[in-house]
Amino acid sequence: MTEHALTLTPPGPLREFWSHFRQNAGAVAGLLVITVLLVVALGAPWLAPHPPAEQYRDALLLPPAWLDGGNWRFPLGTDDIGRDLLSRLLFGARVSLLIGCIVVTLSLAAGILLGLLAGFFRGLIDTLIMRLMDILLALPSLLLAIAIVAVLGPSLNNAMIAIAVVVLPHYVRLTRAAVLSEIAKDYVMASQVAGAGLLRQMFVNVLPNCLAPLIVQATLGFSAAILDAAALGFLGLGAQPPTPEWGTMLADARQFIQRAWWVVTFPGLAILITVLAFNLMGDGLRDALDPKLKR
């Protein structure tokens, strides 16, 4: 081998993944925004100029600082009871990312477990699980979430449980489909012949090979969770005031749409940017992880 040939050795899987991911400008932008959001969420108490629930009675519905009547004490203005909009938005990042984290963790864990069970045991267990998922899918997601919240009572916790249940079928179906296609492959048969136990087959052999679609779905699940939670908040069925949740903030702000556009515009923009960032990254991950689409 010459030196020239050595420099052209195929890259390792992680580096190859990164080189694919990096080519996707949108995905990198998404990752960047998510990083910023994480920093904002973690550092909200230090970054925010005011406590999120502090009411300044002398500054009701103040416009953003760069407009007439604005004040740099409140860079993005204040809401109807004099709370600093910027501070509430920064703390809102906390709430939204937490919602995403909890919902995705819950649904991913339960989804993988149910999917593995259905894929490995087939038969009655499979039918039962998949029928149940079909039923959940027959209901429009927001409607099902609303129904669950109607039973449990409106609160952020219940909204998160409801959303986790609503998105569950996607993870179950995805895991099951991946398991079925992996099980049919020779390496699983080979390791079964070699005497690998069921648990080993499930978690060591098959699951890692199903991860790519699950990672993508989980990333997209983040955005779906944030969006649905905001919608529930907007309908008054999610986070309750004075929690600085973006959807709830919008619901409060609706009545001021004619007088104070900023209380309506900024929370929605925050939701859009966050959701868009996760969707961009999810798409980038899919392109980088899906071998079928490579090149």
Binding site: A230, A231, L250, G268, I271, V275, L276
Partner: peptide
């Protein structure tokens, strides 16, 4: 289309009304 897909439509409605 990605923006549309990520759109909180309740906010989108408010913007259009505005």
């Amino acid at each position: 289309s990605l923006t549309g897909y990520s759109m909180p439509i309740f906010w989108w409605a408010l913007l259009l009304i505005l």
